[in-house]
Amino acid sequence: MIRATQVRPHYRWNEAAADTVVLGFDDRHRRRMTMTGTRGLEFLLDLQQAVALRSGDALVLEDGRLVEVVAAAEQLLEIRGTDPSHLVRLAWHLGNRHLPTQIVGKGLRIRHDHVIEAMVKGLGARVIEIEAPFDPEGGAYAGDGHDGGHDAAHAHHDHGHDHAGHDHKHHAYGHHNHDHHGHSHAHDHEH
């Protein structure tokens, strides 16, 4: 099976793509995985380290052909604040829980989660259920999202540590077992 061993960052390529893969958020952060394009091209993603793929990236096959990455539509919550200051406060609460969050126009997008939905509504947010591609921020250590840095793995697994004098667990809601940086993480989902 032909392998894809490199990634060209989003839209930094102009050749015609041989095929396209439509991937959800979880499948866009892998090191090794068999994939099938929308036109039937089968290949093995075989990177040296896990990379956070973004919509518009190209996977480079061993023979030089490119496969375009497209983010799949997912069930999301779009969170709106009453004003910019309120939105920043809401963003702080999401960040404090290490939730992958996408910043859009006048709101924030997260994966659908009823517990977080109740929390932000309790903080006065307006919440809209949508279906759209999910492309969250990479984090402070992510660079252009292709270095496989610590934050990408950090955002995807549970861990307990102390924040401002209170101990709590963080959750990457909706995640299961994933291959990150060559090793697996199991996730518990207690609330």
Score class of each variant (00 low, 15 high):
Arg126Ala: 14
Val120Phe: 00
Gly37Pro: 10
Pro100Ser: 13
His112Asn: 09
Leu76Ala: 06
His183Thr: 13
Arg109Gln: 08
Leu59Ser: 08
Asp83His: 12
Gly64Gln: 07
Gly124Glu: 05
Glu62Ser: 11
Ala91Cys: 07
Met35Ile: 06
Gly174Met: 08
Leu99Arg: 01
Thr38Asp: 11
Glu131Cys: 09
Val51His: 04
His146Asp: 07
Leu45Gly: 04
Ile116Phe: 00
Phe43Glu: 03
Ala186Ser: 15
Leu94Thr: 02
Phe43Gln: 00
Gly174Ile: 02
Glu68Ile: 01
Ala164Leu: 15
His175Asn: 15
Thr5Arg: 08
Pro133His: 03
Gly122Gln: 02
Leu108Arg: 00
Gly24Tyr: 02
Gly40Ala: 05
Ala4Asp: 02
His112Ile: 05
His163Val: 15
Gly37Glu: 10
Leu108Gln: 00
Leu99Phe: 05
Ser184Arg: 10
Val67Thr: 09
Leu87Ile: 07
Ala16Lys: 10
Phe43Thr: 03
Leu90Ser: 02
Thr36Met: 08
Arg97Trp: 03
Arg97Ala: 06
Arg80Lys: 12
Phe43Ala: 04
Ala58Val: 03
Gly107Glu: 00
Asp162Ala: 10
Ile2Lys: 10
Glu129Ser: 14
Ala132Thr: 02
Ala58Ser: 11
Asp162Pro: 12
Ala50Thr: 10
His191Leu: 14
Ala140Gly: 15
Phe134Lys: 11
Val104Asn: 01
Ala18Pro: 07
Glu137Gln: 12
Glu131Gln: 13
Ser55Gly: 12
Glu42Cys: 14
Asn96Phe: 04
Gln49Trp: 14
Pro100Arg: 03
Met33Asn: 09
Ile110Phe: 00
Gly122Val: 04
His191Val: 15
Pro9Tyr: 05
Ala172Asn: 07
Glu129Thr: 09
Glu137Ala: 14
Arg28Cys: 07
Pro84Arg: 08
Gly149Cys: 12
Ala140Arg: 09
His114Tyr: 14
His178Gln: 15
Pro136Tyr: 03
His180Met: 12
Lys106Arg: 15
Lys169Gly: 13
Met33Asp: 10
Lys106Ile: 05
His175Arg: 15
Met119Pro: 01
Asn177Leu: 07
Ser55Leu: 08
Gly37Thr: 07
Leu45Ile: 14
His168Cys: 04
Thr101Asp: 00
Val104Lys: 06
Gly139Gln: 02
Asp151Ala: 13
Val120Tyr: 00
His168Tyr: 09
Leu87Thr: 02
Asp147Gly: 15
Ser184Met: 10
Glu15Lys: 14
Asp144Gln: 12
Asp113Met: 00
Leu87Val: 03
Val88Ile: 11
Pro136Leu: 04
Ala155His: 05
His86Glu: 05
Ala153Trp: 09
His170Leu: 09
Asp188Pro: 12
Glu62Thr: 13
Gly148His: 04
Ala71Thr: 02
Val69Tyr: 04
Asp27Phe: 11
Glu117Cys: 02
Lys106Met: 09
Arg31Ala: 02
Gly64Lys: 08
His168Ser: 05
Trp13Lys: 07
Ala132Cys: 06
Ala164Trp: 11
His187Glu: 08
Ala91Asp: 01
His166Ile: 15
Leu44Trp: 10
His191Pro: 13
Arg30Phe: 03
Thr38Met: 05
Ala152Met: 13
Ile79Asp: 01
Trp92Gln: 15
Leu59Lys: 00
Leu53Phe: 03
Asp19Arg: 01
Leu59Cys: 10
